[in-house]
Amino acid sequence: MIGLLLDVATTAAILFVVAAGLLITFGVLKIINFAHGGFLTVGGYAALVVTQAGGSPWLAAPAAFVAGVVLGAAVERVIVRPLYSRPLDAILATWGLGIVIVQLITLAFGRGTNFVPSPVSGAVAAFGTDYSAWRLIMLVVAVLLAAALAALLQGTRLGLEARAVIMNEELAQGLGIDSTRVRFVTFALGAGLAAFAGALITPLLSVDPLMGVPWLLNAFMLVLVSGTSLASLGLASLLLGGAQVVISTYGNPVLGALSIVVLAAVLLRIRPAGFARG
């Protein structure tokens, strides 16, 4: 039972970390970034490069974050900004970008699976059972990340401006907020968080050009049911991720793997606002 609870909590934590970048981009820019999977992959490869160059595995995630921010900034400037007035086209363009990122990584690193050493390995005794040390660390990371993002949104000028843009962009512009800058910073930050997450999941996964794909759809659905709220995302990750773990464990893992997308789809039909208040 403790094992199951830990499975649920850590699965939710991983989902939260993976989807957080997508959520803030969606909140401010009102577009779903289909290149999110590509950014995750970039993060995984950043971790690979750092560790292969002899860097500590602990440095992998911060380095990936920086790489993601730089890439995201460039992408926002070149691809997303010109499509400001055409949100659906912006989504399609990020889709194309996802394809391009995967192909470029394939050309640069080959198609094989790669391995990034884990900062910690094996299981530790926790709550009366042996449990994967890295998954427990992910739990801590998720909580810290949520706290940091909340502090950023609530406690800084940028956060205030971002919240204003999320609520009502026209009004925010009317109040003299430079929404172009807010969008730019947010997209870069979202990409950075995606890459950060990509590096963080490498101890559990292989690093290969398609590593982002399985996460993409789940992250979309979580964001769609969460609207623009971090708290909702946390709740959605916990409930839907929990459903995935429970269905996989007591039912069929194939159904379990589909449970997030299916439950989210039905939920959105019944309650379009999802877990967000409204």
Binding site: G96, L97, I99
Partner: peptide, 20 residues
């Protein structure tokens, strides 16, 4: 195959941005 997919992806982005 890889170059081909890369080209298709790039052309797709260019068309979306410049020639909607």
């Amino acid at each position: 195959p890889f170059i081909w997919q890369l080209i298709v992806g790039l052309v797709f982005i260019v068309v979306i941005v410049l020639m909607p």
